[in-house]
Write a protein that binds this DNA or RNA. Structure first.
Lengths: 156, 156
DNA sequence: CCTTAAGTTGATAATGAGTCTCATTCCTGC
DNA sequence: GCAGGAATGAGACTCATTATCAACTTAAGG
């Protein structure tokens, strides 16, 4: 479901529904779902992997840098896009979890690339339990967790 | 062991041994363990929580900003200190896991504070298993994992 | 339609965390 | 002691990201 570029016929339906959902979310916050924002989202969906801003602009040169940054920020605020701080020069962006599903990342400490991975749901359940217990004990109110694996990717 | 400021008598032994270990690591890479670097380490140890560079300089105004950055970088390269990218303006620094033990973080998305937490070792074992399996399948060579909880701290 | 208000865009300027430079100072082994 | 390498600190610099602002687009009323 995740991690694959989308192009087929049923994926057009997926895109249409996604756009509808996102349009709703933006409207709730008094924002418009303009063509530039749609292209931003489609670029992320079609790539199927987290992208940096230079990645995005390169893949879609029509998007002005300043607008891309501004729109990514708005989409992040609206919960449509998630910003990933991998430690390199640039932040990475991908669809937010409500749209893409809960998952984690393989982060290469050599080349900085990021790949999505999915965990066994049993493990997720156990981790969630632990986290909830810790939250209850410390008065911390969790919204999400991130479990990322750092190392060297197959190419490095 | 972690998360508590250190001041007591047996903690002086801990510090002495720590300094010895770190000195060895630095020497291996042809670096000296100067007083500025020792103070950097002690500030982190005594605080017992991840700190940003402004935190460190405020706690120890003798340290010049440029030297602090340079020395943190060297200590990170030598595996003595770990850099945490929490997403805020500043990176956080803490003792590396070989010195502080494996642990995770509560990251407040309001005020940006970071607190150390420890997991049940059984959970850690299961997570490690999953991660190893994923690594084997994808050709990824892991060095470490990060499991952080994002949300609002008790004060926010 | 016309108007108006609000949202958006893109070029550009500004911000600021982190890095680099370099002259000076400090160590350390000989 | 002293020569050579390492470290320091002040300041200049880089560059990802944000803010600014005038021009443009859109949506809703009247």
């Amino acid at each position: 479901m995740t991690g694959q570029p989308r192009q087929g016929a049923e994926d057009r339906d997926f895109l249409a529904e996604l756009h509808a959902q996102i349009g709703g979310r933006l409207a709730q916050q008094g924002h418009r779902y303009t063509s530039g924002r749609q292209e931003l989202v489609e670029t992320l969906v079609l790539t199927g992997q987290p992208m940096t801003l230079p990645d995005i602009v390169e893949a879609h040169p029509k998007l002005a840098q300043s607008s891309a940054y501004r729109n990514l920020d708005i989409l992040v605020r609206c919960g449509v896009i998630r910003r990933i701080n991998a430690g390199g020069d640039h932040a990475y962006f991908e669809l937010a979890e409500p749209l893409l599903g809960h998952h984690h990342h393989l982060i290469c400490i050599s080349c900085g690339s990021i790949e999505d991975i999915h965990f066994d749901s049993e493990i997720e359940r156990l981790v969630d339990e632990s986290l909830n217990e810790i939250s209850a004990r410390t008065g911390f109110t969790p919204t999400t967790h991130s479990l990322d694996l750092h190392g060297h990717c197959a190419d490095c």
